[in-house]
Design a protein around this nucleic acid. Structure first.
Lengths: 205, 205
DNA sequence: TGCCCCTGTATACGATCGTATCGTATACGA
DNA sequence: TCGTATACGATACGATCGTATACAGGGGCA
């Protein structure tokens, strides 16, 4: 094994453990939980299968740990989202989210895949997304940035759907639109359209 | 086997074949393609596993047939959608879709599950949904029901996301909202909110 | 009546799944 | 320097996967 001689046991543990988490997140996101095998995950992480049992007890335990890490990431994203308000701030929120997606694409695709099967982890993921959007809506209401008589619960749900939508379409995006949903040009057009929709809509009454 | 004595071989074939398709659609939708086993599908259909090979060649062949049938159903839904126009017609479109969802809930949940993995069938499903929405947008533009300077491609994509969104959230809906996404009350609120969004938005500029 | 294809079941097969076990290497405290 | 706990890899095990094979009943036709 070509390891650095000064590498301690602790860093080795963390590295391998984290490598397994990253490999699992990537493969679960790409193929789904059932289709991704432990041997494949261990191979991508460059470790032996036994380590999954050592560190996480089982394949399900690995998923739970991944869930925890992804939830923590979204939590962090959420904390910054709360700093933004209003419609011009919607752009900032989008920018934040886009920047996060670029940096942690696997995490978003993992959320996408996790929502496909109902587990405690995926339920928690969705609940957190809803919480973020509810807070965003409530804050904007308090600042008078919401129109009158808005169904706030549905507004929050709308924002969740709108956040997840591109992730759901992402695997098909290249074929249908000629580029990734998170390509800069795509994000720009989408951002412009969504900004228009939430403030004016796009159809005449 | 408790079969009707007057049942002919032909109807038996169709029944068992169709039972396999319905069972497969249901289980693929509920657990995903990988997690649903052929024995489980055959058991739910009340037939032996060998029939899957007889009628569809393989598990993948069964999925392809399910894809075809679901695509045909959406095609039919699409043809009626084209009859509607305008914002008040958006209600009718929603009503049509909701009626279809009630009747063929498994079909929609199958679409949801199919979009999770990229196959020729799922790509075709998504493309068809996009086509439906593009036509809807184009028709409305021709009738002058679209606002000026609308990004029509994104409008269609928006409608697709909006159509799929509730299906994606459906498994979590009971916990998060206390009822199904396709409960009448839910549909009513959602329909009202979406109608408002596409015509006025919900935030002040 | 005999032959045959079609639909169908039961069962066997090889591969792969997730998990368990065991041996070894390494790090750390006494 | 030794003992012990832990990290890690190699491999075995039982279960289950999708698929293949063998055979049974039952109309249609010569």
């Amino acid at each position: 094994m070509p390891q650095n001689a000064t590498e301690t046991a602790t860093t080795t543990q963390l590295n391998r453990r984290q490598r397994l988490i990253l490999a699992g997140r990537h493969l679960f996101a790409a193929k789904g939980y059932s289709a991704a095998g432990v041997r494949e995950i261990a191979a991508e992480a460059g470790v032996s299968i036994g380590l999954i049992r050592t560190h996480f007890g089982s394949k399900a335990g690995l998923r739970e740990e991944i869930d925890r890490q992804v939830i923590a990431q979204i939590e962090e994203l959420c904390s910054r989202a709360s700093e933004h308000l209003g419609t011009e701030a919607l752009d900032l929120l989008v920018e934040d989210a886009v920047e996060w997606v670029e940096r942690e694409r696997d995490a978003l695709l993992y959320v996408r895949a996790a929502l496909m099967e109902k587990t405690p982890g995926s339920q928690a993921l969705l609940r957190q997304l809803l919480e973020i959007m509810r807070r965003f809506v409530a804050l904007n209401r308090e600042r008078g940035l919401l129109q009158d008589d808005v169904d706030e619960e549905w507004a929050a749900t709308f924002l969740v759907i709108d956040f997840l939508g591109p992730a759901v379409l992402e695997p098909f995006s290249e074929e249908e639109f000629g580029m990734s949903m998170y390509h800069r040009e795509m994000v720009k057009r989408r951002s412009a359209f969504m900004n228009r929709v939430v403030t004016r809509g796009f159809m005449r009454s």
